[in-house]
Design a protein around this nucleic acid. Structure first.
Length: 477
RNA sequence: GGCGACGUAGCCAAGUGGUAAGGCAGAGCUCUGCAAAAGCUCCAUUCGGCAGUUCGAAUCUGCCCGUCGCCUCCA
């Protein structure tokens, strides 16, 4: 295990790369801000959760007992608005989008969180926290809701390096909001006509603000004593205001701040050089994108860029990643299966090198480079190294992929062959095999003209032949 | 306007003081009847530009140019 070497991680809270160590023994408690399924998930979400999946795998590889919590913001203004537009309930909207997201995560090989708390299941805890904040003078109720008074938290802005005075200058109060200070944010919104709501005496029925749910759920699931948990993660766009607000809500009620020891943020993803976001609407739903691209290629693509960097997604880049994936598969097929006599030294160094790369602030790009450069590793070491990156060879890795042949393949082939080979009553695949057999006979007789004629006929119909030491294989062009 | 990030080969990208990882694309060689595959080799005297600090700079400092993000919901 790599416990001897320190794991370095960039901590947004301290603004430096530092050595990671759990607050208690070998236990690591992680909270990652999950999806708000008011709309469909996109590739940007995937990049973030893919990274935290790798982080989680690596923490476990180092021997830590990891508790990974990822919430679901299953109530918010947008899901209510969307439901209204489509004549559905917000629950229907949220459930459909979340199910789609979960399916995409599964296809990408992202492991299930240990806990997946829904905001609406923690209303009592949220309300208890709001009561405490009011009692301590950090929150106040007005006509439209209950707000957090930012000015009561002196270190507000330290995570995002914002200056409260400067924020004040740019902030403003929207119409219909009755907060006392433009910087204040809602912890509870009173319900308007027909909006979903939960009773909250004596203040009034309504729904939680976005930020308070994370404060309440981290406390409930990871830190009941109020002494902090290990890692809080999310996309870089959550640093301000979401995470700043979480801190402001949580820390005044804690015995020992900080709320989270290490804050980890993943860089945003650009799509065609522009930010993908719900409001810009310039995104393709993740579920649709995964129909077009191999999920493992997507995973490889993200591994090649530092997790904190802004990354631009293009069709070319994913194509290159697909080629890399094919190369990995090819290498995998050539390796000695586990149990065979292999050089242990080679295998061990590969895993060590990958681990060393990940120790360096989760440098997955170097880790992947190590795997690609490895000289004859054992299949076991190769598998274990890839597993750290969340890539698991499956059954399809052992066979060369063969796309399906078109429906009119037999007809076209018969035309191309002009009766040279009998094809009656055979399937498309059998036809290919039959021609390969005929060609082999021709080659044995050194009848190169016939041999090339058969190969060309297949090529015209989109099938390429590859002669190898073991025999002839084929693939669809 | 305020704050911040980034700019490394045709493309993606690692590297934050010691002389440019890796991938894609491309080129050559070997092998094979031919082709493909495979194996081997090559592919940035240079890191947006200009100054400066230093024995030494892609890495530090200053200025300039360019791209993007955050400041409002956002992974």
């Amino acid at each position: 295990m790599g416990d001897l070497k320190p794991l370095k991680l960039y901590n947004t809270r301290t603004h430096i790369v530092e050595t990671f160590s759990p607050l208690f023994d070998d236990e690591v408690r992680v909270y990652v801000c999950g999806l708000t399924p008011s709309g469909e998930a996109h590739l940007g979400h995937a990049r973030s959760f893919l990274f935290f999946d790798v982080l989680r795998r690596y923490l476990e590889h180092r021997g830590y007992r990891v508790t990974y919590v990822q919430n679901v913001t299953d109530i918010d203004d947008r899901s209510i608005a969307t439901a209204r537009e489509r004549g559905k309930t917000y629950r229907e909207i949220v459930d459909a989008n979340y199910a789609s997201f979960k399916n995409s995560m599964r296809r990408l090989g992202v492991r299930e969180p240990d806990r997946e708390p829904y905001a609406t299941h923690y209303v009592p805890q949220i309300q208890a926290m709001i009561r405490s904040l009011i009692a301590k003078g950090h929150a106040y109720a007005v006509r439209d809701g209950i707000y957090y008074a930012v000015r009561t938290f002196p270190t507000y802005g330290s995570l995002s390096r914002r200056n409260v005075e400067e924020l004040e200058a740019g902030a403003r109060i929207e119409i219909g909001e009755h907060k006392r200070d433009p910087l204040d944010f809602a912890v509870w919104k009173f319900a308007k006509d027909g909006e979903p709501s939960w009773p909250f005496d004596p203040y009034g029925a309504g729904r939680p603000g976005w930020h308070i749910e994370c404060s309440a759920m981290t406390r409930e699931l990871l830190d009941p004593p109020g002494i902090g948990f290990d890692i809080h993660g999310g996309g870089a766009d959550l640093i301000f205001p979401h995470h700043e607000n979480e801190i402001a809500q949580s820390e005044p009620l804690m015995r020992h701040p900080p709320m989270a020891n290490v804050w980890v943020h993943g860089g945003l993803l650009l799509f065609d050089s522009r930010k993908m976001s719900k409001s810009l609407g310039n995104f393709e739903p993740l579920s649709a994108l995964l129909e077009r691209h191999d999920p493992q290629a997507i995973r490889l693509l993200f591994l090649q860029t530092g997790y904190r960097k802004v990354m631009n997604f293009t069709e070319e880049s994913v194509s290159a990643a697909r080629v890399v994936l094919e190369r990995l598969k090819k290498t995998y097929r050539s390796l000695q299966p586990a149990g065979a006599s292999v050089s242990r030294a080679n295998g061990d160094t590969l895993l060590d090198r990958v681990a060393a790369a990940l120790d360096d602030d989760m440098n997955t790009a170097v880790a992947l480079a190590e795997v690609l450069q490895a000289q004859a590793p054992s299949r076991d070491a190769f598998e274990r190294s890839l597993a750290l990156l969340g890539i698991a060879p499956d059954a399809t890795w052992l066979v060369e992929s063969q796309a399906t042949l078109p429906a009119d393949f037999i007809q076209r082939l018969a035309t191309a062959l002009a009766g040279e080979v009998e094809l009656d009553g055979v399937s498309a695949e059998q036809a290919v095999e039959r021609i390969i057999a005929s060609r082999r006979e021709a080659r044995e007789c050194r009848d190169w003209k016939r041999s090339d004629r058969l190969r060309d006929a297949l090529a015209t119909c989109g099938v390429d032949l590859h002669d190898t030491k073991e025999g002839t294989t084929w693939s669809v062009a």
